[in-house]
Simulated scan of single mutants.
Amino acid sequence: MSAILTLVANREATTLTSHDIELASTLAAGGEAIPLSPGEAVDIACGPLTPAQIDAIRFGLGDRPVDVLYGPAAGRRKKILVADMDSTTVANETLDDVAAHAERLRPGIGEEVAAVTRRSMNGEIDFQTSLRNRVALLKGLPASLLEEAWKDVKINAGAQTLVRTMNAHGAVTALVSGGFTWFTSRVGELCGFVENHANILNLSGDTLTGTVREPILGPDAKLQHLIRIALTSGAPLSSALTIGDGANDLPMLRAAGLGMAFHAKPVVRKEIVNRIEHGTLRAALFAQGYRAEEFVEA
């Protein structure tokens, strides 16, 4: 069989059952299930499936907190990882957090910034314009707000394991964000990313100027970083894994051999077939055929 269907249960909420596996295998006309992690993840060999067939399997599982992932059997283990930061590698939207901490100095700024972020991530407004507008609202505020926001940053479950496991197996790993280098440099180091790229906030002494260095790293730049890494490493785009949650991630998600939506916005869920909707970033390793005992835990 030429393809693999992978089921991954949210292990904090449930255990993968024989009924889950049998239902998915029947709907996929698949073969025997091969465990990747007992009670958590299995591979099921199958033939080619359409997005509609994959959605039918999700529908069949109902409200079970089980992710349904799919891809070719050949070339599963990827040689490149390019991941978004905000709401993907970390649970936060870091610019929103900066604005939230500014509430005591400029009441109302938190929700004003967050509202624009939501619209931008769902593709309702241009990313570059929205970023300039949001940053402009921070003009004159103390740069110490960045440090306050950093204290709130939470690395998403499985992020460090994903990065360190792929590093250990020879992949090039890059954190590429429409956020800011002030955060990506720290998150990249904590998770073990080989590279990190983001926008640069302009400061005047200890004060935010309300501007960001041009050109802005947006959707096209994320794609260009993916292409650059592929060319430099001599690996085709088909051997790349990209992960993100927002509209600005779509170009790189479309281009990679395995593009994965992580607890994503509706515009992304609508387009991307491989979606982590229930579990953690561990699912991205299972989607590549890694067994749990091969994981490099942080």
Rank of each mutant, 00 (worst) to 15 (best):
A9M: 08
A9I: 06
A9S: 12
A9K: 02
N10K: 03
N10M: 03
N10A: 15
N10Q: 11
R11T: 10
R11A: 14
R11K: 11
R11E: 15
E12M: 05
E12N: 12
E12T: 13
E12S: 14
E12A: 14
A13Q: 15
T14D: 13
T14S: 14
T14Y: 06
T15G: 03
T15Y: 00
T15C: 07
L16G: 02
L16D: 03
L16A: 01
L16S: 01
T17A: 02
T17L: 04
T17I: 05
S18N: 10
S18H: 07
S18I: 03
H19N: 11
H19Y: 02
H19E: 14
D20P: 06
D20R: 05
I21P: 01
I21K: 00
I21E: 03
E22A: 15
E22D: 15
E22N: 13
L23V: 13
L23S: 10
L23M: 13
A24N: 09
A24R: 05
A24K: 04
A24M: 08
A24V: 04
S25P: 02
T26R: 14
T26F: 07
L27Q: 12
A28P: 13
A29R: 14
A29H: 14
A29M: 09
A29Y: 06
G30Q: 09
G30D: 07
G30E: 08
E32D: 14
E32T: 14
E32I: 11
A33F: 05
A33Q: 07
A33H: 02
A33W: 03
A33C: 08
I34N: 10
I34P: 00
I34M: 09
P35W: 07
P35G: 11
P35D: 15
P38E: 13
P38G: 03
G39M: 06
E40M: 12
A41I: 09
A41W: 06
A41N: 04
A41E: 08
V42G: 02
V42S: 02
V42M: 05
V42Q: 03
D43R: 01
D43I: 00
A45Q: 11
C46N: 11
C46Q: 10
C46G: 10
C46W: 08
C46P: 12
G47F: 05
G47N: 12
